[in-house]
Computed example of a mutant assay.
Amino acid sequence: MILQLWNSHMSRPSPELLKPRKTPRQTRSAVTIEAIHTATIQVLLSDGVGRLTTTRVAERAGVSVGTMYQYYPHKQALLFAIVERQLDLIVTAMLEAAARLKGRDLQSVAEGLAAAWLEAKMADLVSSRAIYGIATEFNLEELMNRAKHLMVGAISPLLRSVPDARFADPDSAAFMLAALLGGTVRVVMEAGTAEEDLERLRQELPRACLGYLQLVACETPARGLASGA
Rank of each mutant, 00 (worst) to 15 (best):
I33W: 02
A217G: 05
T193N: 04
R25W: 06
I131L: 05
I36C: 04
I134E: 06
D171T: 06
A114L: 04
G192Q: 09
R207I: 12
N139Y: 01
M151R: 15
Y212L: 15
A97Q: 09
D47C: 02
T184S: 12
Y212Q: 08
A208E: 05
L89R: 09
L18A: 02
L201N: 09
D47W: 01
L78I: 14
A179Q: 10
L150T: 13
L205Q: 01
F167E: 14
P206Y: 05
V162L: 11
D47K: 05
A39V: 06
V65G: 14
Y132E: 07
R56W: 05
K121W: 06
A110D: 09
P15E: 10
G153A: 02
Q214D: 14
Y69K: 06
A208Y: 02
A208S: 09
I2S: 11
A61Q: 02
L106Q: 13
E219H: 08
S11M: 13
L143A: 15
I90E: 12
V126P: 00
R223I: 06
L45F: 07
I2K: 07
R28C: 05
M176F: 05
G228C: 03
A179V: 12
T184G: 11
A93D: 00
R85S: 11
L95Q: 11
A178M: 10
E190Q: 10
M94Y: 05
I134H: 03
K22V: 14
L18H: 00
A97R: 03
Y212E: 12
E199Y: 02
R223W: 15
L106N: 11
Y71L: 02
P163C: 08
R85T: 08
N145E: 13
R200Y: 06
T27E: 15
